[in-house]
């Protein structure tokens, strides 16, 4: 088997710390009841957390470009589906 990058235990610990901090931030902001902004912030923080999990825990950072393009393509496709559905819903 070809050589693979081995993530250190410390790096996993750092990633977890980042994820927990973002969770705390997200909950704190939600408690402030900022209305429409809180929706945007919650989804933004979730996206950052999700990207962190994909990049480090799911090891995408150390995969070949092919995997990165594949995953990015799937999310781009999903974004298009959301946009088209809302266009259809709003302008029907």
């Amino acid at each position: 088997m070809e050589k693979h990058h081995i993530s250190s235990y410390t790096s996993h610990g750092i990633v977890l710390t980042v994820l927990l901090t973002l969770t705390a931030l997200s909950v704190t902001i939600a408690e402030l009841h900022l209305g429409a902004i809180s929706v945007a912030v919650a989804l933004l923080v979730a996206s950052i957390k999700g990207t962190t999990v994909l990049t480090y825990f799911m090891h995408l950072k150390y995969e070949s470009t092919f995997f990165k393009v594949m995953v990015a393509g799937v999310f781009a496709m999903y974004a298009l589906i959301i946009i088209f559905t809302f266009f259809d819903y709003i302008f029907r």
């Binding site: 993530s7 250190s8 996993h12 610990g13 990633v15 969770t23 999990v53």
Partner: peptide
């Protein structure tokens, strides 16, 4: 219940780290 939701988020995040660590361990 936001508390129980947050608690479960923390639990799952930690579990994700332990799995990632177990893969590092087997690689070593």
């Amino acid at each position: 219940n936001v508390f129980i939701g947050t608690l479960n988020t923390v639990v799952l995040l930690i579990s994700s780290m332990t799995v990632a660590m177990s893969i590092s361990a087997i690689q070593k």
